[in-house]
Structure formats: C-alpha cells, structure tokens
Amino acid sequence: MTKIKVADFKTLPDRTPSYALVADVDLVVVRWDNEVSVFYGRCLHRGALMSDGHVRGKNLICGVHDWDYRLDSGVSEYANEEVLPKFESWVEGGDILVEEDEIAAWGHANPQPFNRKSYLGLYADTSHGTEEEPYAGLIQSYARSGLKRTGHHGQVDAMGVPRSQLPDWDDIQILTAQLHRAPMLEDEAVGTEVVIGPNARKPLRLDIPLFVSDMSYGALSEPAKI
C-alpha cells in the first residue's frame, strides 16, 4: 500500500471543499467536524470540479448546476442512483492520507479525458454539451483553433435550441391567393373607403374602415336605427 498525503487536517477549513490530485485523478477533500471524506473530484453531470462547489447541510454541492452528493457516502440525495466515487482516507499524525494504489486502479478503469496543459485544462467540458446545448463542443473548438478549420464565417447555424424545436419548411403555410396579385409599393395611393349597408336607404360611408362612437348603455336610439 502506498500512502499519500492530500491535505493537512488542522489547516483544512471545515465544510470547505479542497482540491487534490493523485495518480492523475482529480479529488475533492471535505472535512466536516471531525470527519473527512475524499471523493472523485468531478461532478457526474458535466465534469465540473467539485472543489469549486460548496457544502450545504449534509451535502456536497456542485457549483455549476447544483448537483448534490452526501458528505458521508457520495450518494445523491436527489437521485440515489447517482454516486460520486469515494476513496478510503484516514488521518495520521495530522495528515489526511489516501491509498494511491486504489486511486490509480480506479483511474486506470476510468481514463480521465483532461489535458491539464491544453486550452481550459482542468476546466474543460468533456461532455460535448446536452440536447439544450448541442454546440458547446463546436464553440470550444473555435476558442482553441479559431476559424481556420471552418472558413471565414465559421459554421452558420442556430445555437442553444434543440433542432427538433426549430421551425422548418413544413411549418410554413403559403396561401397562393395572396401571391396572385403583387402588392403595391408603399408610396402608391390606396383606396380605403368602406360602405356599410350599400343597399340601405342611408348607407354609412367611411373614408377608412374605422368608426369610433360612444357607448349606448343599452339599445340604440331611434335616430341611429333609421
């Protein structure tokens, strides 16, 4: 067994997540009262660093999307099937220790995709986005390589909305009757006169199809009717 120190118990702030790196695996070390837990340091959702999160009650909370994990077990209180891997840890002579071989074996079984020397390094989003963010990977590629791989304008498309929710040609209804006669230009005169009751004895003629009158508060008066 190879013991390795990840933090000092006395100087580790209570209920404040701390970052550690062992065998190329990111870890988060959390002390609460006299207890200590060492977990895999990445949120199961989008791989955000859990050391950038915070403690709320009995849970370790991801600082990006509020995913929660119990301090004692790593089990999500919200969704029990989600479990943040926990590694054996103990305090010896004031040092918080872990077993390097255990973490290395876990890292071998779960290869880490983070290149700490590349763009974004520890903070790279390796999930390539979700349905609501389908172009996260494309945006990051622009940040790394610019437009040299896609041309001057880059890829032109809608971002941030699932393609299934975008309108397509099937949603557009074209009424051919409206295309039969081309519309007039905006500076051409247009007749707006409207005749209401053209066959009546006294038809109502309006210069424009807009008529404003007082409310009758009941029935129309006799002069208005005739």
Rank of each mutant, 00 (worst) to 15 (best):
Y123R: 14
L122D: 07
S73F: 02
V75A: 10
E99F: 04
V75C: 10
E82G: 09
N115I: 07
R116Y: 08
A109T: 01
I139E: 11
A105S: 08
Q140I: 06
L97S: 07
E132W: 11
F114A: 03
H54V: 11
R116A: 07
A104R: 08
R116D: 06
G121F: 05
L60P: 02
P111C: 05
A105H: 00
V98I: 04
V91P: 12
R116C: 05
D95V: 06
K86P: 01
F87C: 01
V98A: 00
A124T: 14
S127R: 12
Y135A: 14
W67C: 11
K58N: 13
S89G: 08
S118Y: 05
E132I: 13
P85S: 00
P113A: 03
I61P: 01
H108I: 10
H54R: 14
N110G: 01
P85A: 00
N110A: 06
L138M: 12
R70P: 01
F87H: 00
I103C: 03
V83W: 06
V91H: 13
G137V: 07
P111W: 02
T126G: 14
S141E: 15
V75F: 04
V64M: 14
G63F: 11
D95P: 05
D125C: 14
G93K: 13
Y69Q: 00
G74P: 01
C62K: 09
T130L: 11
H128A: 14
D95A: 09
S141V: 05
L84Y: 02
S118K: 12
E102Q: 03
Y78I: 15
N80A: 12
V98E: 01
L97T: 05
Y123F: 09
G121W: 04
E77V: 15
V91N: 09
K86Y: 00
L138V: 09
E77R: 10
R56A: 11
E100Q: 08
L60G: 02
P113K: 04
G129Q: 04
Y135I: 06
K86N: 02
L138R: 12
R70A: 09
E133T: 15
W106S: 02
P111L: 05
Q140P: 02
Y69G: 01
Q140G: 10
K117W: 06
W67A: 15
Y78R: 15
G121L: 05
Y119M: 12
A136I: 08
I96Q: 05
W67H: 13
D95L: 05
I61K: 02
